[in-house]
């Protein structure tokens, strides 16, 4: 495939206004990593299976490798860097660290964005529900048990805090 003419896009990334010129074929995750230096979103499979590139687009999680940067024109993107700085994931990150719910850490940003989506729905989901919700995020290291523990503990803690 030969490159096509670039398109100018403007979008909000982690609260910052971004104006860039992108090739139509550039994926959102490549754009974030290469144009903006946001390397916390990872490229694992580039065909939408592993979930390492999971980011938020207008508040909904998407695969950064199946979304094109040009599709994000005029929209709002949030990544692990932004959600870390805002403190939104602080309790989830602390639980992952205490429970060793990450080993190599490559899946972790995507995994946490996916978990946060479930947790934002409120209540204390069952372990099966947690497992089903994160089943689009591949982790080769942990065997998932610790991840389920960490997410469950955050759900319980948030529920207690009301």
């Amino acid at each position: 495939m030969s490159p096509q003419p670039a398109h100018d896009i403007t979008l909000m990334v982690n609260g910052e206004a971004i104006a860039e010129s992108v090739e139509p074929r550039t994926t959102l995750v490549d754009f974030l990593r290469e144009a903006l230096g946001l390397t916390g979103s990872h490229v694992g499979c580039e065909h939408g299976v592993c979930g390492a590139c999971t980011v938020r687009l207008d508040g909904v999680i998407v695969r950064g490798c199946l979304t094109l940067a040009v599709q994000c024109d005029g929209r709002r993107v949030e990544t692990i860097e932004g959600l870390s700085d805002s403190g939104e994931l602080a309790d989830l990150q602390a639980a992952f660290e205490r429970r060793n719910a990450l080993q190599c850490g490559f899946c972790t940003p995507g995994m946490m964005l996916t978990a946060q989506e479930l947790l934002a729905a409120g209540g204390v989901p069952s372990r099966d529900t947690i497992r089903a919700h994160i089943s689009g995020n591949y982790c080769r290291c942990t065997g998932y048990h610790a991840i389920v523990d960490a997410i469950e503990s955050v759900a319980q803690a948030r529920a207690q805090q009301g």
């Binding site: 979103s41 990544t79 692990i80 870390s84 990150q93 660290e97 990450l102 850490g105 946490m112």
Partner: peptide, 19 residues
Amino acid sequence: VPRPNLARLAQGRAQYVSD
């Protein structure tokens, strides 16, 4: 005890070779 430096990975501030 928790592993040192896990926060770096959990915050997306790791440095893999692909980065």
